[in-house]
Amino acid sequence: MLRFVLLIEDEDAHAELISRQLIRLGAPYLRVERARNLIEGLEAIETRPPDAVLLDLGLPDTDRRKTVARFVAAAPRMPVVVLTSENNDNVGAEAVGEGADDFIVKGDADGRTTLRALRYAVERKRHSRQLLLYAKELQQANESLRHFSQLVAHELKQPLNPMLLNCAVLRRELTDPSQTALDSIGDIESAVRDMSRLVNDMLSFARFSAVRTPQEESSVGEVLVDVLSRLNAEIRERGASIAAEKMPAIRAHESLLRQLFLNLIGNALKHGKAEEPAIEIRCRELQEHFEFEVEDDGEGIASEYRSSAFDMFCRAGRTTDARGEPIDGSGIGLALCRMIVEHHGGTIGIRSGAQGGCVVWFRLPKAGLPET
């Protein structure tokens, strides 16, 4: 509730008029006190904090271009409405951009307008504080969830290697095992490897979701060279050909960029043609973004699955790869891609290729995101 307003105004006539208007409309509850300059006003806030402040831009002890910034730096939580004698929306917009809650042109304002602006400023600041509190609680909850998921993934991974070793021992030690026994051991090994991939993907998702390292100038071309080197064995096994256009340098988290291309090119290798798949990696420059595309020559993704393809554990209707073998992924890869792209302020999607394959495209801002 608005009960106490501090008016920081050096002109006596304006101060008297505004005070009378506010007291008349806010009586008997509203008290208005006055300070004649910024320093006096800030001292008054320290000793007797008001519910809101009316702040004149043209005070004698400060540059009018710095008045709001100085006030907000000294009293960041105080609701403040700026008074200006300039009938110029740009002046008011600049004041709000620097932290004021509203602005009033002296010649246009009556008491009701001023009182309403002050009440709105108080409510706006209250809601802003509440949102900051909710954001902090949400951040803490997300951090706890991330630690929990890492702990669970670690504990799940612990018994997997011994299980594979025991399967190898069984294969070696069993005398004349039946085909059924060998098939059962193979099923166990396959299930353990699937579980291991799922756990690794969960760990990657938890790890990359918490990346806070600064963005840096990253050569996408160099990242691609590294990615293709890591995928070299799979590329050779599949007899795949990969054509990549010249790539730009952008501001990005390089480790995330590398993981993004690893996932997308790895998916293209899985779902390209069964024999000697061809993959194209393209880039085009837009006004404020670079748009990248990774295209395979497989069967593509049906339109009804494209909107959900980036959801966790979604396989987009696919159960086998291009060679008819069961897909060995966890269904987290594209979800991780979306998280990485959105982490950079970009967008990602899927469309059909000219030859019927799948094109995964994503856009990243040229300048990266402002560091926070």
Results as ranks from 00 to 15, higher is better:
residue 272 G to L: 05
residue 242 I to C: 14
residue 249 A to V: 15
residue 216 E to M: 02
residue 190 S to C: 03
residue 172 R to Y: 11
residue 294 V to M: 12
residue 222 E to T: 03
residue 182 L to R: 13
residue 251 R to T: 11
residue 267 N to R: 05
residue 205 F to D: 05
residue 175 T to E: 08
residue 271 H to D: 02
residue 201 D to Q: 04
residue 233 A to C: 06
residue 253 H to P: 06
residue 208 F to V: 01
residue 289 H to K: 07
residue 242 I to S: 12
residue 218 S to D: 01
residue 171 R to C: 12
residue 273 K to G: 09
residue 219 S to D: 01
residue 175 T to C: 02
residue 185 I to Q: 02
residue 292 F to H: 03
residue 186 G to S: 13
residue 251 R to K: 07
residue 248 P to G: 03
residue 193 R to I: 08
residue 208 F to M: 01
residue 244 A to G: 08
residue 200 N to W: 04
residue 213 T to N: 08
residue 192 V to Q: 04
residue 213 T to K: 14
residue 189 E to N: 08
residue 258 R to L: 06
residue 244 A to D: 02
residue 194 D to E: 09
residue 185 I to M: 03
residue 195 M to V: 04
residue 254 E to C: 05
residue 239 G to L: 02
residue 209 S to G: 12
residue 262 L to R: 07
residue 258 R to D: 08
residue 277 P to H: 09
residue 272 G to H: 03
residue 207 R to G: 09
residue 292 F to G: 07
residue 261 F to W: 11
residue 230 R to H: 09
residue 176 D to F: 03
residue 234 E to W: 06
residue 247 M to N: 05
residue 176 D to Q: 06
residue 242 I to Q: 10
residue 215 Q to L: 04
residue 232 N to K: 02
residue 179 Q to L: 10
residue 234 E to S: 12
residue 230 R to P: 00
residue 225 V to C: 08
residue 209 S to K: 05
residue 267 N to I: 01
residue 195 M to L: 14
residue 191 A to N: 11
residue 290 F to P: 05
residue 202 M to Y: 07
residue 216 E to P: 01
residue 267 N to T: 05
residue 236 R to N: 10
residue 244 A to F: 00
residue 247 M to W: 06
residue 287 Q to R: 13
residue 181 A to M: 14
residue 274 A to N: 06
residue 232 N to Q: 04
residue 236 R to A: 15
residue 203 L to C: 01
residue 203 L to D: 10
residue 258 R to Q: 12
residue 213 T to I: 11
residue 244 A to P: 04
residue 216 E to K: 01
residue 232 N to E: 14
residue 178 S to W: 11
residue 205 F to N: 05
residue 275 E to I: 02
residue 258 R to G: 05
residue 290 F to N: 13
residue 175 T to N: 08
residue 289 H to Y: 07
residue 273 K to P: 00
residue 185 I to S: 01
residue 236 R to I: 15
residue 207 R to D: 15
residue 278 A to F: 09
residue 294 V to D: 13
residue 223 V to E: 06
residue 273 K to L: 12
residue 180 T to S: 13
residue 242 I to A: 14
residue 202 M to N: 09
residue 192 V to M: 03
